[in-house]
């Protein structure tokens, strides 16, 4: 995950409390989504950014997961995400995200 974004996630967690943050990931691949999710839960696996060694354990979802989809107005969701739903490997992404949540998330 971009070093600047790691800093923003860290700052927001300090300001509002890690238990009050939900991170929504939009990556196009299961692996990339998993890396981002791991960064905001277990810490930066590439040891490059501000979240290196910082295990925030944030609640993290991909925008294409069913639980997130249910929170949206269906028309807006279709307008914004409908096309990508057709393109992405949703099962692979959901599997990766669930595995990360299972292992590292403290808040959801």
């Amino acid at each position: 995950m971009d070093l600047e974004n790691q800093q923003r996630v860290l700052d927001l967690s300090n300001e509002y409390g890690a238990e009050n943050i939900v991170v929504l990931v939009g990556a196009g691949e299961g692996e990339a989504a998993g890396l981002a999710a791991e960064t905001v839960t277990a810490g930066d696996p590439t040891y490059a950014g501000p979240l290196t060694g910082v295990s925030l354990g944030l609640c993290v979802y991909h925008v294409c997961e069913e639980a997130v989809k249910a929170e949206f107005d269906p028309d807006i969701y279709d307008e914004q995400v409908g096309m990508m739903e057709m393109v992405l490997d949703l099962d692979e992404i959901a599997e990766e995200m669930e595995a990360i949540r299972e292992e590292y998330t403290k808040y959801c």
Binding site: A27, G28, E29, E31, A32, L35, M84, M86, V87
Partner: peptide, 13 residues
């Protein structure tokens, strides 16, 4: 690198 096949993703879109 986890970024997928970019031209193919574009074509799928």
């Amino acid at each position: 690198a986890g970024a997928g096949d970019v031209p193919q993703s574009n074509m799928k879109m």
